[in-house]
Design a binder for these strands. Structure first.
Lengths: 246, 246
DNA sequence: CGTTTAGTTGACCGTGCTCAAGGGGCGTGG
DNA sequence: CCACGCCCCTTGAGCACGGTCAACTAAACG
């Protein structure tokens, strides 16, 4: 990891996401922007940013790249409980708890901002709507987490994968990372399997089924959704749980 | 629902739980206690307190009884994403979002306190550690939610049910609702099935397996765990995600 | 070039689901 | 008081969805 210079566009996803939850004033936006730019790092793919059991002592905001939030069982089984996408936070407010319940890995090279607890607390104390927006991101994480439980617990393989793709697509769209009906999709099938609670073999066959149905094109880390409405139907996707949509 | 008189012990679970997350001062405890007692309601079993899509406009604290947090698919499939136990909150801070992503039903007759948004915000503004304790309850809900995703996604039926029982047992122990190795366990097998992502038939057989292994006794809405360590082993239960333990 | 990583395919198997039927407890109404 | 219905639990039989194991290809990389 090393400190790097930042071009103006990099903080765009974060600001966009927060503004979808609470209208931020210009001064609040500027203060937030400034704090974020104070310490920008990057990491390669496959690095662990925090492990289960560690004390979370700083806040990280993802500016570019994908990460996975996951837990391991003793015998190596892994469940990815969420992806962390550009504009999202790794651990807002988690410093309030003594240790992390899960681990976070980079899935791709990642650019992120790191904020210590104190400046973060000063920041949220300075503007009410900024604090509310940040709290909302935490609440939305909760909503997404609940939807994932539903996805894994009550949808079959095809529905499950279709739903996952719809959700990620919408989350990327919010931060401007969708062009037309395509987006970068830089995860392996193994990651997708661990995110959807399927075996890697069955995930592979499920993807092929979605391709054969003409719903998606997924190759070379690029996802194209040919018919988003059809994919949503296939995944029983109901966006009520993503409050920034609509 | 109707207003009722409160005996002194009813707020115990809530206070106990918050104190496990943050040491509360006497004055903070008293202020909280007073706010809670202002409006105490009860509901029968099988009532819906809030439905998916509704605006959450007040905070509810459970003083007695069990509830389920769940989501429905169009075709009626249901996933219970968490139980809400005595001392826990139905929807702390969720008023920050425009609508609820899930529904909450009572599983038993329930006694709860209802707090409007304004007095709640005054309350948390009055004491820093109280606010942090309440935020922590929200973060712990997140931890539990993630663990449920792991449970449903990566554990087999026996492990899954064993884990669920361990978790609920520990959560009840925290608020003083465990006596010896037994606790009230007032849910139907259908509820347990929907919580663990299993069919009701298979859940029934899994419970019988746990009984046959001598791990648990479960009858007449009463759970006895004969060997908690063995049950934890069977469920690959790692309590790191429950910060108030240990 | 050899090695590693990701994706794909086939064959077989088993966990967990579906459908169906029946039992026990309990409340309600005749 | 009994009959009936309802809810919850239980059991059996058959099956299918998805897991496991294994082998192979293709691309990436040193």
């Amino acid at each position: 990891m090393s400190i790097m210079r930042l071009d103006g566009g990099l903080t765009q996803p974060v600001v966009r996401r927060l503004n979808a939850l609470r209208q931020l004033s210009e001064t609040a936006t500027a203060a937030f922007d400034k704090t974020i730019r104070r310490r920008v790092l990057h990491a390669g793919a496959g690095e662990t940013l925090i492990s289960e059991g560690e004390r979370p002592d700083r806040i990280r905001v993802v500016l570019a790249g994908w990460l996975s939030r996951y837990k391991l069982l003793e015998d190596g089984r892994r469940q990815i409980v969420n992806f962390i996408l550009p504009g999202e936070m790794c651990d807002a407010f988690s410093y309030l708890l003594p240790r992390s319940d899960h681990s976070i890995d980079t899935l791709t090279p990642v650019v992120f901002s790191e904020i210590e607890r104190e400046p973060f607390e000063e920041l949220i104390a300075s503007d009410r709507s900024l604090m509310e927006a940040l709290w909302c991101t935490s609440l939305v994480d909760g909503s997404i987490q609940r939807e994932w439980a539903v996805n894994i617990g009550r949808r079959d393989a095809l529905e499950r994968v279709a739903h996952l793709l719809c959700e990620v697509f919408e989350r990327l769209k919010l931060v401007g990372l969708v062009e037309g009906n395509s987006c970068a999709f830089p995860v392996t099938q193994m990651d997708l399997a661990d995110a959807s609670g399927l075996s890697i073999v069955h995930l592979n066959r499920t993807l092929q089924e979605l391709r054969a149905a003409g719903l998606i094109i997924l190759r070379e880390r690029m996802l194209t959704i040919n018919d988003l409405d059809a994919l949503k139907d296939a995944g029983l996707f109901n966006p009520t749980y993503l409050p920034y949509l609509r």
